[in-house]
C-alpha cells in the first residue's frame, strides 16, 4: 500500500462506495435532519429522490419476479429484500410526512419569499399553494366574507404582530461535528465560542447551528 491509497481512503470525496449505498446514507441523513430541525430544510436538488424511487421500483419488480419461485433459498432472499424494501419505504414516507407537517403548519411563511419557496419540491409547492387556497376559501365562506373588506386579509401586520407565524429558529437542536470547527453559541446571559473536535456532540440554538450544518461541518442528530 503506498501513500496514495492511504490518502484515497481518508478522502471522503473518493467514491468507492456504490451509488445506492450513498443514496441511502444521504436519505437517512436528510431524514434525521428534517425531523430535528425546527424549520423546513431545502429539498435535495441532486435527483436523490428520482434515484431512490427508481431503486424502490426495481426492488418491487424483483420481488414480484421472485414470488413465483418456490425454492427455499429464494424465499429467504425474498424476505430479506422485502424487509429492506419496507425500511426504505418507511424512510421516504417518514421524511415526506415530516416535511408536509412543517409546510402545513407555516404554509404562508414558506410561500412568502422566493428563497423559502425554493426549499420546497415542485410537488410540495403545488400542494402548499392549493392547501392555502382551500383554507382561505374555507375562512371566506365560513365567516370572513361577511367581514368589512379592510379586515379580510390574512397577512395583516397591525400592532407590530404579523399574522403569519414563523417557525421558532431559536429552539434547541443536537449536532455532531463532522469536522473540527469553532462552534459559537449564544446563551441567555453570555455567549460562548469553543473549538470542537470531530464527533463531538453539542446542543445549541438552531440559528447558531445552521451555518455549521449548511457548511457540512456538522450534522443534526
Amino acid at each position: 500500500m503506498d501513500i496514495d491509497d492511504i490518502l484515497q481512503e481518508v478522502d471522503p470525496s473518493f467514491h468507492t462506495i456504490p451509488q445506492e449505498k450513498r443514496d441511502l446514507q444521504e436519505l437517512t441523513r436528510a431524514w434525521v435532519a428534517e425531523r430535528s430541525a425546527p424549520e423546513l430544510l431545502p429539498w435535495p436538488a441532486d435527483g436523490l429522490f428520482e434515484r431512490i424511487n427508481g431503486s424502490i421500483k426495481r426492488q418491487i419488480e424483483k420481488v414480484e419476479e421472485m414470488t413465483g419461485d418456490m425454492d427455499p433459498k429464494t424465499n429467504f432472499a425474498l424476505i430479506v429484500i422485502q424487509t429492506e424494501l419496507e425500511r426504505f419505504k418507511y424512510l421516504v414516507r417518514s421524511y415526506l410526512r415530516a416535511r408536509i407537517a412543517k409546510i402545513d403548519k407555516h404554509t404562508l411563511h414558506y410561500l412568502s419569499t422566493d428563497e423559502l419557496r425554493g426549499r420546497l419540491s415542485d410537488m410540495e409547492l403545488a400542494y402548499a399553494t392549493r392547501h392555502q387556497a382551500l383554507l382561505h376559501n374555507h375562512y371566506l365562506s365560513s365567516f370572513l366574507a361577511s367581514f368589512p373588506p379592510a379586515l379580510q386579509n390574512l397577512n395583516d401586520t397591525a400592532g407590530g404582530i404579523s399574522m403569519i407565524e414563523t417557525p421558532d429558529l431559536e429552539s434547541a437542536v443536537f449536532i455532531r461535528l463532522l469536522k473540527n470547527a469553532l462552534v459559537e453559541g449564544r446563551g441567555v446571559d453570555t455567549d460562548d465560542a469553543t473549538n470542537m473536535q470531530v464527533n463531538d456532540i453539542v446542543i445549541l440554538r438552531w440559528s447558531d447551528a445552521k451555518p455549521l450544518v449548511e457548511a457540512g461541518s456538522a450534522e443534526l442528530i
Partner: peptide, 13 residues
Amino acid sequence: WTDIDLTGSLEPP
C-alpha cells in the same frame, strides 16, 4: 408517490 403509500404507518417497520 405510488410506491411509498404516504398514509401508511409512521412506526418504523
